[in-house]
Nucleic acid binder design. Sequence first.
DNA 1: GCCAATTTTGTAATCGATTACAATTAAAAT
DNA 2: ATTTTAATTGTAATCGATTACAAAATTGGC
Lengths: 340, 340
Amino acid sequence: MATMKEVAHYAGVSVATVSRVLNQPQSVKKKTQEQVLKAVQALNYTPNFLGKNLRQHQTKRILVVLNTISNQFYSRVVQGIEDKAREFDYNVLMMTTRNLQKNILEAITMIQTKIVDGAIFMTTLHAEEQISELNRNYPVVCACEPVEDTEISCVSIDNIQAAYDATRFLIERGKRRIALMGVNFDLKKTDQKIHQYGSAALREIGYKKALEEAHISVDTTLFFPKGLTYKDGASSVWDILKLKRLPDAIFAFSDAGAIGAIRALKVRGIRVPEDIFVVGFDNTAMSEVYQPSLTTIGQPQYMIGLTAMELLFERISGHVTKSIVLKHELVERDSTRLSV
Amino acid sequence: MATMKEVAHYAGVSVATVSRVLNQPQSVKKKTQEQVLKAVQALNYTPNFLGKNLRQHQTKRILVVLNTISNQFYSRVVQGIEDKAREFDYNVLMMTTRNLQKNILEAITMIQTKIVDGAIFMTTLHAEEQISELNRNYPVVCACEPVEDTEISCVSIDNIQAAYDATRFLIERGKRRIALMGVNFDLKKTDQKIHQYGSAALREIGYKKALEEAHISVDTTLFFPKGLTYKDGASSVWDILKLKRLPDAIFAFSDAGAIGAIRALKVRGIRVPEDIFVVGFDNTAMSEVYQPSLTTIGQPQYMIGLTAMELLFERISGHVTKSIVLKHELVERDSTRLSV
DNA sequence: GCCAATTTTGTAATCGATTACAATTAAAAT
DNA sequence: ATTTTAATTGTAATCGATTACAAAATTGGC
């Protein structure tokens, strides 16, 4: 609660000296140091970073912008970000947007108003334009979700290839009616730039590519763009059950969605994997623990976080822009494995 | 990137006028307003909040401190916090501690250095002392986890009663060897103040109370204080299987732990609920979706968040301290229900 | 058209730190 | 002991905003 001025007065020195003791102690005499530190103790002084940051034009803080923290997936990405940030003595703050543009703009304001030195966006949807604009003047990195603007540093897997791999995996196992469960396909109607739809649109492309390669025609009645949660997965299954012919496989763009779907199928007596194969996305902890365990596309979450933070540092110090694609992996488990 | 000074110059007015246009436009002539706004546009001006906050001694931001964002449970609490915060035009930032004291101290610094106006801690373990000290000079509220210091505002359920209810529920269904899976029991050895162990210790008390009431002796070989994750639950089961006599029920302090346990039991051919009953904690989405669905203690997460934020506002504006206990509920599902 | 009352604008202090530069003090060299 | 050099400290400007107070401009009443 005390200010540096009061500390200076108490210690009988100038504020400059106090500042030096706290920031470059080697430049001040041992004895004065002690006096000052004693005063700091006595007055229970803690610096006001608003003043410090204002003067120094830097905060040593960055912001991570997420849609929701209830997605297991992000936790590990954030850990990567934090570990790398710590190396450089930076603090990591987070904000959630819950898919509302309003909240993304709020996060953007946080950067423009100099509360943080930069930001990592894991949510580009609904505000690509504004993030792009932000990126012209402030350090920005996008992670997990693709962005159209090549001026923005970005880290993610190859979503097209990943979906292609998953789809092909199912096709090779004899599946031909593969339902797709994910998000935002419908945005397509308003704009043809694919990047704007995020990873889901890319995955849809990979899916189609695999089908075409196998000469299977794309059936859009098998698309269920509800969302990524358990409930979305379950709810999509209610729709699926209305189809004349059921699909023989489901490819969900999230593990939670896949699990919600399996659960709903079970309620109707449809078995996984015997009747329908199911593949998820992200390889979250639950995909291993669920019964049946879930085949899924694993993303190198920790590495994504680490890399994103690295790119952000490069951006903060030198305005270098760079995009990196990391490797995914298909993890085969029980939801696509018929027991022998 | 432009400063207010530049805007003022461009518009041909003083900085005071610019500030007024932005903050109390009614006090400035229409025509000047337009000039200024035009300048703001032209120079793409955004205020620097460091300066503003410094001058005004407030930031309109608060910090939420969590152990981890990978716990489904917190997501909904945070939503409550955010919704209430928005009502008062506050922003909510988050930091994770991953159960490391070092990180809690980092969060505390964030408040002391005036980057935020106050904080909600959902993680008191490892730093009660410091949080208590912080609370003397800055607005602090604790949520979900109990705190010893009565000067700290706190919101949570009655953990003793909740655990009592769960245990009693099992006893009433004929279970007598009830294993406990949770965290931090062992801290007990170093200090006898129960509050320091957090909610887990309270739950242990409730558990014991129910047993004693039923004249069942407490068997500490049935305590498995590994942690709250899926893996912890599964790993505890490996230990359980080493027992001479298996328990007939498991009460886990988290849904994830309970599910991890069910999964591990299944691997060894032990069925839930036929062979063992399992009860979880928190009523997260997965408890409904898992197979078998999980009986669990539900906490009013959203309400906890809402209330915590309310208490923080009271603390920010008037140094009122208040603690609130909210109601829990026992949700019965398949993991404790023998099919007829 | 003049004066008082009111509205609008500007000047300068302020928030709490850092830091260039100057001034002082101590140590080293002669 | 005196000068030179280096180490230590202080003075004051600065970061970018807000805001009390003073000054100027406008309005209204006569």
